[in-house]
């Protein structure tokens, strides 16, 4: 399957329809509908436990869904015959905890998937990795092991690692919440760069200010239901749903303490 990463086919990059997911009989996602256009940045917000991470994990096929469909570039990836490895090749996901491989250098972390999954030769893979490291201010860390990096540096490497395979779609799950405030800025800088480069992204965050700045579309999840969807303007200044208003108010109150 060949993909032109710059501009995909006409339709949405990602289309989630009627997605249900339960753990041990307790529904966590309840009929989610979500579509993401090329170059669109979608930000998922919602209380802890509302199912944001679960949604991203389902999209990445790290979880099997109970019902509904997910299409990537018009192809159904929830089809039982679809090859999850092939689907994941086209997506990058970065988790809250960095999950770098501790026994590999930064460079090896980044080039592992290009070399072993995409068949890129080592010199080219390393060249691209160094380019990315350079772009995100980590050129001198190529040979370092993850435990020698600060949290912010580790998280930037994790993002670069996901980027190295030129994904069609990036999924970022609370990539700043394990970081000290002063390290958050540098990671947010990377995400801004990605947006400027036209990357299609879904991200979850508790940084409302950042969400408002970076998102094209904000989705509010409440108890596994996608309750409200709109532009940052709409959601943050004039939310339709009382639950959304309540959530945003509680976040603001928490900030004040």
């Amino acid at each position: 399957m060949k993909h032109d990463r710059g501009e995909g086919p006409g339709g949405p990059v990602l289309a989630v329809e009627g997605l249900w997911k339960s753990y041990h009989g307790a529904p966590v996602l309840r009929g989610i509908d979500l579509s993401v256009e090329a170059h669109e940045v979608v930000c998922l917000i919602g209380a802890s436990g509302s199912g944001k991470s679960t949604l991203l994990r389902c999209v990445n096929l790290l979880e099997t869904v109970d019902d509904g469909t997910i299409h990537l570039d018009g192809v159904e990836i929830t089809d039982v015959r679809a090859d999850p490895d092939d689907v994941r090749k086209r997506m990058g996901i970065v988790f809250q905890a960095f999950n770098l491989f501790p026994h590999m250098t930064v460079l090896d972390n980044i080039t592992l998937a290009p070399r072993k999954v995409h068949g890129v030769a080592r010199p080219e893979a390393e060249e691209r990795a160094r380019e990315l490291l350079d772009r995100f201010g980590l050129a001198d860390k190529a040979g370092a092991y993850p435990d020698r990096l600060s949290g912010g540096q580790q998280q930037r490497v994790a993002i670069i690692r996901a980027l190295a395979v030129r994904p069609r779609l990036m999924l970022l799950d609370e990539v700043t919440s394990a970081l000290d405030p002063e390290l958050v800025t540098e990671v947010l800088g990377v995400i801004r760069e990605l947006k400027a480069g036209g990357m299609t992204m879904i991200l979850t965050t508790h940084e409302m200010g950042f969400c408002r700045e970076i998102a094209d579309t904000v989705c509010f999840l409440d108890g596994g239901v996608l309750l409200e969807r709109g532009t940052p303007e709409e959601i943050f200044t004039d939310p339709r749903e009382p639950r959304t208003r309540e959530f945003l108010k509680s976040v603001l109150d928490a900030r004040r303490i």
């Binding site: 994941r88 996901i93 998937a113």
Partner: peptide, 24 residues
């Protein structure tokens, strides 16, 4: 989470074992 990270990069079960899990 190491396995999840490897699988999410598109590594198969075998490659995940070989390059990520077994060395650790």
């Amino acid at each position: 989470s190491q396995r999840a990270a490897a699988r999410s990069l598109g590594l198969s079960h075998g490659k995940t074992m070989r390059y990520v899990v077994l060395p650790q």
